[in-house]
Structures are given as structure tokens and as C-alpha cells.
């Protein structure tokens, strides 16, 4: 098992390295760090701009390969991810932001999968009941609500609630309130700020799991091996839990990895709407500010998140599927 995971991890590491370096060239091609200095007054000459960018390895006088080599040696030798065109080190931004986005994405994915799969299992074993039809309709509608609309709708609802109650029940902006002291107060405050963004990611994420898990379990319920299990004397619930459910979870587990990029995209919009200073906000800011090194760091973060999800889903597949042997 350890060897299997290690082999998968090495494959994904190679993928991360390729993706990150490719993003560096793409970003260098499409972003122009000089534009940050062109709008300044008094007007800078091209020489002055090149001179200002040189200490950060972004000098337009260097060839792309030269700049790439400077960036790569910084990352490999000192784990230094470079600077923004105005000289802010990327390393000073990433840890805090990665933590913020990481908890958002992790909570969003876990809550989506748990709620979606549970709903799918519940409704599949009660096909065409009222609960099944109602949740199905709700899910189809939610599936079509864009992240932007749902996030802003949540903000409206929370603001309305706060006004009705008269105090701030739910925070709609930021990851924490300034000036909150004490361990418990801080934890509670942060948890409160987490509620709405997580609800938003979950609302949009759970639907896919609900609908696919429902149809997968329905397929499994009609399979011969479930009838055999019933014939050996198991009750319907036991047959579902021990045989049908386990078989139908396998495709679900394998597809977790492929949803991480979508969750990250959702997180970009969620962070923008709720004013979180995470990787998603960093993504939009760095592109708007022509920050090559920052964009590359965001791409690396996205690739790492995908790889972690992929490895976890591989492990889940091995645990669930007796046909997959790793040793």
C-alpha cells in the first residue's frame, strides 16, 4: 500500500512540476510586468523600468529561458517562489492564503461528498418516493445556479437575517474579525466566518454526488449479486449496505480527484464574493497585476490540491474495490 501510494505520488509530482513550469512560460508570455510601472507618474523610461524589475528576475532584457532559470533555481535551492513586479515576496503571501483556501476547499469537498452520497443512498433506496422527487428537483435546480448567483444570494439572505435579528448572526465578509482576543473567541469567530462560504461551496458541490450516487446505487440494486445476497437471507437494508453500497461507492471514490479543479474554481468566486484573502483572491489579483511569479504559485497550489485529491481517491478505491490489488 505504501509503495503504491508512493508510486502514485511520484507520478503526480512529475505532473505538478510539468504543470507549474508550463504555467511559468504561459504567464511570461501573456503577462507584462512592465505595465505596473508604465502608469506611474512621473513617467519612467524603459531603461528605468527594466532596472526596477531586474532584482526580481523579471527584467524584460532577459530571455524567457533566462528568467525561467532564475525562478526555477530560486524555487529549488531556497524554496523562494519569487517576487511580484513591485517587489512583494510571493513567499510572504502564500502560507497564510494557502491555509485559508485549503480549509475552505477541504471543508467544501468533504461536506459535499458526505451530504451528496448520503442523500444519494437515501433516495436511491426509496426511488420515486416524495423525498426522492423533492430532493431530485431541488438538486437539478441547484445544479444550474451559477456560483456567483448562489454566493450573492447567500449574502443577501444573511444580511436580511442580520437585520431581522438586529445583531450580526452570520458574517458575510472576511475570514475573521479584527480585534477578537482569546482562543475560544477566535475559534468561534473564524468558524462563524467559515459558515457561508462553506455552505456556498457545498450547495453547488453536493448535487453532482447526489445525482451520480443515486443512479449508481440504483444500477447496483438491480444487479444479480444483490439478489443473491437477498437470497442468502439478508434483509434489504443489509443487502444494500454490505453489497450494493460498497460496489456503487467505487466509481464515486475514483471521481473525487477530477472535481478538485472545479471546487478550486468555485473557491475563487466564493472568496471574491465573501472577501476572503485566500488563493482564489490571489489568483485574480496576480493576473490583474501582471504578477508572473504569483500566478505560477497559484497554479502550483491548484496542482497540489488536485494531486492530494487524486491520491486520496486512489487509496479509497483500493480500500473499497477488492478487484484492485496493489501488492
Amino acid at each position: 500500500m505504501v509503495r503504491y501510494v508512493a508510486r502514485k505520488a511520484i507520478g503526480w509530482l512529475a505532473m505538478i512540476i510539468v504543470a507549474t513550469n508550463a504555467t511559468f512560460f504561459l504567464a511570461s508570455w501573456f503577462l507584462d510586468p512592465r505595465s505596473n510601472y508604465r502608469e506611474l507618474r512621473p513617467v519612467r523610461t524603459e531603461d528605468q523600468i527594466a532596472h526596477a524589475l531586474a532584482p526580481y528576475g523579471l527584467s524584460p532584457r532577459w530571455s524567457v529561458v533566462h528568467r525561467w532559470w532564475y525562478w526555477l533555481s530560486g524555487v529549488v535551492l531556497h524554496f523562494d517562489w519569487g517576487h511580484s513586479p513591485t517587489g512583494v515576496p510571493v513567499n510572504s503571501e502564500i502560507p497564510r492564503r494557502a491555509l485559508v483556501s485549503g480549509q475552505l476547499i477541504l471543508l467544501g469537498v468533504v461536506a459535499s461528498v458526505v451530504i451528496g452520497v448520503a442523500l444519494g443512498v437515501y433516495t436511491a433506496s426509496r426511488q420515486y418516493s416524495l423525498a426522492d422527487r423533492a430532493t431530485q428537483t431541488l438538486s437539478v435546480v441547484l445544479f444550474n445556479v451559477p456560483t456567483v448567483v448562489s454566493a450573492l444570494g447567500l449574502v443577501l439572505a444573511a444580511v436580511w437575517l442580520n437585520q431581522r435579528v438586529g445583531t450580526t448572526v452570520l458574517h458575510v465578509a472576511g475570514a475573521n474579525t479584527a480585534g477578537v482576543d482569546g482562543t475560544w473567541a477566535t475559534i468561534l469567530d473564524r468558524a462563524n466566518h467559515l459558515i457561508l462560504p462553506t455552505v456556498n461551496l457545498t450547495l453547488l458541490g453536493y448535487v453532482g454526488w447526489h445525482l451520480t450516487q443515486r443512479s449508481l446505487l440504483l444500477d447496483a440494486l438491480g444487479a444479480d449479486f444483490v439478489r443473491t445476497a437477498r437470497a442468502t437471507g439478508l434483509t434489504r437494508t443489509q443487502a444494500i449496505r454490505r453489497h450494493a453500497l460498497r460496489a456503487s461507492l467505487i466509481p464515486t471514490a475514483t471521481s473525487v480527484a477530477f472535481t478538485i479543479p472545479a471546487v478550486f474554481t468555485g473557491a475563487i468566486i466564493t472568496e471574491t464574493v465573501f472577501g476572503w484573502e485566500g488563493m482564489g483572491r490571489y489568483f485574480t489579483e496576480t493576473i490583474a497585476k501582471n504578477d508572473v511569479d504569483g500566478v505560477v504559485a497559484v497554479a502550483a497550489f491548484g496542482a497540489v490540491a488536485t494531486a492530494v485529491g487524486a491520491i486520496l481517491s486512489d487509496v479509497a478505491t483500493v480500500v473499497l474495490d477488492p478487484r484492485v490489488r496493489v501488492s
Partner: peptide
């Protein structure tokens, strides 16, 4: 697996 949203944003921004 490529970060397609990022590339979309980069190019359409340009």
C-alpha cells in the same frame, strides 16, 4: 488536469 481556468483567465485578460 491542466489548470484550464487559469489559462482561460490569462489569455482572455490579455
Amino acid at each position: 488536469v491542466v489548470p484550464s481556468f487559469l489559462i482561460l483567465a490569462l489569455v482572455s485578460n490579455r
